[in-house]
Design a protein around this nucleic acid. Structure first.
Length: 512
RNA sequence: GCCCGGUUCGUCUAUCGGCUAGGACAGCCCCCUUUCACGGGGCAAAGACGGGUUCGAUUCCCGUACCGGGUACCA
């Protein structure tokens, strides 16, 4: 009884892939996988003016990073190839003509200038944007108003023209949206949308219906901004005689700006200082790079988790979900109807949680290049692994590891002796000199032993250990941060520990 | 303007008509930690408004307000 689930995402390669787009993919993917179906990626490279060459590859890379690999796509192919709209061009015309023959669509010869004139002429304060609708179509240059012979002549001569859908008058058209329930429209309120453009390319309206039919799509998820044109698509399915094959629709809520009003845009990220694209995007025209979540130091798991929670939850207090959990627990009827404002602080919290929960082995391949990029050579994998384990709970973004873990691999770049100096005296100097001697003799080099020895020596010198631990920390890591001092000493080893103590001692002496 | 959608703490959200309205982020306070974090505890913070229906409404219905989307030979 149940049709095979085939959900489809159809981005337009216009550059970058922002949060809303990735979330649409995510929900498509989750639903498909949950039902053992396929996630199909179709590319809408129809609009020449906005098509950006590198963007298609960028979309693939983004999906790959997120772990949302499509089952069928222009890259992977599939039983319904091609998946690029431009490569399916010749398939659309026949259906447009079929609609014309059936009287559901018509040729229109109005030039862009004539359309603009129409909009100006009929514009009133009550109606600021006149539509090419059932009333106005009677006043325009189209097959409904012109002599059929004239229409034929112009068409034969190759005079540029479009094909428009002929919207019926005053009919109610309704459908059940998986998220919103029953939604209905009056056809008189919808304009005669262009189906085929003068350049021979279909518009989204025709293309999406034809492709969804031919690709046997069973479920279509898209942004809420498409809701108003849903009646056009519904009618097309009906007029083409495919009504029983129509996919089920789900219109997803929008992701909104954190402040103020409106859809989240790339500009908001620039303005407020956070990414809105999943990965770095360099516009080939302007050569301008927009930073992505990946490059900011987000883990894909955290990014996906954050996105899923922006508009969905499972009804419990659980907030951390892996992609696997999501596939298991996701349900379309728990997707919200209202838009959600994006909160970068919360996004960072998800990343922090994922870093804390990740094994060092998972983090290593991310952290190592970051350290090396900052001139820190990492040769000892054991050391790296242990260092990550020790500092990961204080890293919110991946680059935080550079600051938090650098001192495990080299002498601290700067030593904050100013933090020691005010309370530094000969007694402390003596203590550390003795500490070096004590540690030199120690045979077992582990945190507990080092701490005991440290405290015993402090007591012998009639000093409080607390006053001595900060100086030791500064000597070893350079500043007031990092995990337990003795853990650090244990990890960097005897030679390095003693070297650092001596180094700072000498510095303090010189500065004296 | 018209059409469609939406409306619970500052933000993301929970609530099958029974509510002392719960959780999380952010904020503040305390504990733990002789660093920074993690962790633990606490404080403050919400049902847009007006009508119905009901023993009872945040929940259902209507209206208003506000917000968002659409109103292109863009998607």
């Amino acid at each position: 009884m149940s049709k095979r689930v085939r959900v489809r995402f159809a981005p337009s390669p216009t550059g970058g892939l922002h949060l809303g787009g990735v979330r649409t993919v995510l929900f498509n993917y989750l639903f498909a996988k949950q039902h053992g179906g396929d996630f199909i990626l179709r590319i809408e490279d129809t609009d020449q003016s906005r098509f950006v060459p590198g963007a298609e590859a960028y979309i693939f890379n983004t999906l790959k990073w997120c772990g949302l690999t499509p089952d069928e796509s222009p890259l992977h192919g599939g039983p319904h190839a091609p998946y690029r709209q431009s490569e399916r061009k010749e398939r659309y015309r026949q259906y447009a003509e079929q609609l014309v023959t059936a009287g559901h669509a018509y040729y229109a010869f109005d030039t862009p200038a004539e359309l603009e004139a129409m909009r100006n002429n009929f514009k009133t304060t009550d109606n600021p944007s006149p539509q090419y609708n059932h009333l106005l179509r009677e006043k325009m240059r189209n097959a409904l108003t012109m002599d059929p012979a004239e229409v034929k002549r112009l068409a034969d001569e190759g005079v540029p023209h479009v094909i428009r859908i002929k919207m019926p008058v005053n009919e109610t058209i309704s459908f059940t949206d998986m998220i919103r329930g029953e939604v209905s429209f009056n056809t008189s309120q919808v304009d005669d949308k262009v189906l085929m453009k003068a350049d021979g390319m279909p518009t989204y309206h025709l293309a999406v219906v034809v492709d969804d039919y031919q690709m046997q799509i069973s479920h279509a998820f898209r942004g809420e901004e498409w809701l108003p044109s849903a009646p056009v698509h519904l009618l097309l399915w009906k007029y083409l005689g495919w009504e029983t094959d129509m996919p089920q629709w789900a219109h997803l809520p929008l992701i909104l700006k954190p402040d103020g009003n409106g859809k989240l845009s790339k500009r908001d990220g620039d303005r407020l200082g956070f990414p809105v694209f999943a990965m770095d995007w360099t516009d080939p025209k302007t050569n301008e790079t927009t930073i992505g979540f990946r490059e900011r130091g987000f883990l894909p798991e955290a990014f996906v988790n954050m996105l899923a929670m922006l508009g969905w939850n499972d009804g419990t207090d659980q907030e951390i979900f892996s992609l696997k959990d999501l596939v298991h627990k996701f349900s379309i009827d728990r997707v919200h109807k209202g838009g959600a404002k994006f909160d970068y602080e919360k996004a960072k919290w998800y990343n922090h949680e994922w870093i804390k929960r990740s094994e060092a082995a998972v983090l290593e391949p991310e952290v190592k290049p970051l350290l090396e990029k900052n001139g820190i050579a990492v040769s000892d994998h054991q050391l790296l692994s242990k260092a990550i384990e020790l500092v990961k709970e204080r890293c919110t973004l991946l680059p935080d590891f550079v600051q938090q873990a650098a001192f495990f691999f080299r002498l601290p770049a700067v030593i904050d002796t100013d933090a020691i100096k005010p309370k530094w005296d000969d007694k402390k100097n003596l203590f550390f000199t003795e500490l070096i001697r004590t540690y030199e003799l120690s045979t077992l080099w582990e945190a507990g032993g080092l701490e005991t020895a440290f405290k015993e020596l402090a007591a012998a010198n009639q000093l409080k250990p607390g006053e001595l631990m900060l100086p030791l920390r500064i000597m070893l890591v350079g500043g007031k941060f990092g995990p337990g001092v003795f853990d650090i000493a244990a990890l960097i080893g005897k030679t390095e520990t003693l070297r650092r103590i001596e180094f700072t001692l000498k510095q303090l002496e010189n500065q004296h």
